[in-house]
């Protein structure tokens, strides 16, 4: 369905410097599949999502959607593709026009793409969409600022669903929602997937939710995918030290299991000044001299189809036990 190859996005920031926000990312998303995308804040997840939909210019690489080249599509082709590929933006505050009523915001894509015979039909569709995402009745006539953060996020989801897209980039779609609504929206997305075979690229920080929602998960660090695997394999047998840090840092919803976590030491290097070799090496507890010399490639992990890790020691890392990385409190 979606085939992303060597996607690269560099932002020039003056004086000849480049922010290497996305630096050679490749993955596929099949029809009806959800690929989870997690990773350090600032590692390029949103930029990846935006580049796929061609909302920002790409430096190199290719994106194919349903066999069609997105990055070199003509304007008319792009208009058509935009109908089939949509995005739910990370920031519900910035992405909704404050001057339009909620009804107009959700109806806008319908108007742009001439969907629905008349205004009344569009209104019905808007009502249906808003109730599907659990917004209160009457929301259509109010303005975004009259709603709480979580409610605005749902308006963004309703808008993205308006055109029945086949592929959705969900950029932290439920982070601003309370857990009950979060569960409801995740169920809704799953239902839509079942009924219509929509594919999702699901960006998020909530690891237990991603585990539930995605069939496969990709972990990004500093512009690269460092590990990608079926969800079950990634969580039970992570094969990259960064993935292990992430899993070990996740809080647990039980005060009696409160622990002082062994923090991931150090700070991420800057995407302007990449270290030599492995990008994770200055924070990696397993780093060896070779890690400074050679940039690790994604290698196949034995025994699990589709499990790849970009660590020189991906196959040698000790058996994963999440509890080892916790220090009991006190």
């Amino acid at each position: 369905m979606l085939n992303v190859e060597n996607l690269t996005v560099h932002f020039p920031i003056g004086r000849g410097l480049l922010v290497r926000a996305v630096d050679g990312v490749s993955f596929t998303v099949s029809k009806g599949e959800t690929l989870g995308l997690v990773g350090e804040s600032g590692c390029g997840k949103s930029t990846t999502g935006r580049a796929i939909l061609r909302l920002i210019p790409t430096t190199a690489g290719s994106v194919a959607f349903d066999g069609r080249d997105v990055l070199s599509a003509s304007n008319t082709e792009l208009h058509e593709l935009r109908r089939r590929m949509q995005m739910v933006f990370q920031d519900p505050f910035a992405s909704l026009s404050p001057r339009l009523t909620v009804g107009k915001i959700v109806a806008e894509p319908l108007e742009i793409h001439n969907v629905g015979a008349n205004a009344a039909e569009r209104r019905d569709r808007v009502t249906e969409l808003l109730s599907a995402v659990g917004m209160p009745v009457g929301a259509a006539n109010r303005y975004p600022h009259e709603f709480s953060g979580g409610q605005r996020q749902r308006i963004g989801i309703a808008r993205a669903l308006a055109l029945n897209p086949e592929f959705l980039v969900l950029d932290e779609p439920v982070s601003a929602l309370d857990i009950s609504v979060r569960a409801q929206v995740v169920n809704l997305l799953a239902d839509l997937q079942q009924q219509r075979g929509i594919s999702y690229l699901f960006i998020g920080h909530d690891l237990s939710l991603i585990r539930h929602a995605a069939q496969r998960v990709a972990v990004m660090y500093l512009g690269r995918i460092v590990e990608i695997a079926p969800a079950a394999a990634l969580y039970s047998n992570p094969r990259h030290p960064y993935t292990r840090s992430l899993l070990a840092s996740a809080p647990i919803p039980d005060p009696s299991r409160r622990r002082e976590r062994a923090p991931l030491e150090g700070d991420p290097p800057s995407p302007v000044n990449m270290p030599s070799g492995c990008r994770f090496r200055n924070r990696c507890p397993f780093a060896q001299p070779v890690c400074a010399e050679r940039d690790p490639e994604l290698i196949q992990i034995d025994g699990v189809a589709g499990h790849h890790s970009a660590c020189h020691f991906a196959r040698e890392l000790p058996v994963w036990s999440p509890l080892e990385s916790y220090l009991p409190q006190g």
Binding site: E40, S41, A176, H205, S249, P263, L264
Partner: peptide
């Protein structure tokens, strides 16, 4: 107000500490 929602869990852990 939702201080760590937009953060990955390793940064979240650092901020909370």
């Amino acid at each position: 107000d939702e201080p760590t929602t937009a953060l990955d869990v390793t940064v979240q852990a650092q901020i909370l500490s």
